[in-house]
């Protein structure tokens, strides 16, 4: 493999021993090293907030892959963020059931309240708003996910409550 660009090389660093051990555990689970790519991507995203160049290079090095190989996987999955996201990542479902029960209205409300369109982040870096595909919560539509937490049966008022309850 060719050497990485210098600025990336300098940025790659190891994580804390606990995280490194967690990554090792995932690698050990699979007969082929590269199979661990998705769990490790999630860990790197969790630790660094998003998957940046240095994160991709770290994974490539850790799994003996080329940087392009990791890039291919990273760009395929929508839950891997290649750009920074806010502290709270609001993901509103736009698939059929939620759509029928007013997902549009929910997003409109959030947009108005936070001043951002879907795909954007607030200037203070607190919130990112995204459309996502089916969250598998059709029985309690409309639904959204903030980080890894589910919020169901949404109404604009309920959204306000939820957003108010989030910590600074």
């Amino acid at each position: 493999m060719n050497p990485l660009p210098k600025e990336i090389e300098e940025e790659i660093q190891s994580f804390s021993p606990e995280v490194e051990a967690e990554i090792d555990r995932h690698i050990a689970k699979y007969p082929v090293k590269r199979s661990a790519i998705l769990p490790i991507m999630f860990i790197v995203q969790r630790e660094r907030g998003y998957l940046d160049a240095a994160g991709i290079a770290y994974i490539a090095r850790r799994l003996d892959l080329t940087i392009t190989d990791v890039w291919e996987v990273a760009t395929f999955y929508t839950m891997i963020n290649l750009k920074p996201v806010g502290k709270y990542h609001i993901q509103v479902c736009r698939t059929l059931s939620c759509q029928l029960l007013g997902a549009e209205k929910i997003v409109e409300h959030i947009s108005k309240r936070l001043g951002i369109k879907p795909g954007e982040t607030t200037p203070d870096g607190r919130f990112t708003l995204s459309w996502v595909e089916c969250l598998g919560s059709c029985g309690t539509a409309p639904a959204m996910q903030i980080g890894f937490d589910y919020y169901e049966n949404l109404t604009p008022e309920r959204v306000d409550e939820i957003l108010d309850s989030l910590k600074e």
């Binding site: 892959l65 392009t68 890039w71 291919e72 999955y77």
Partner: peptide, 10 residues
Amino acid sequence: GEEAIEAGGR
């Protein structure tokens, strides 16, 4: 054996 060119995105 180089894996230099790949399909990105979806």
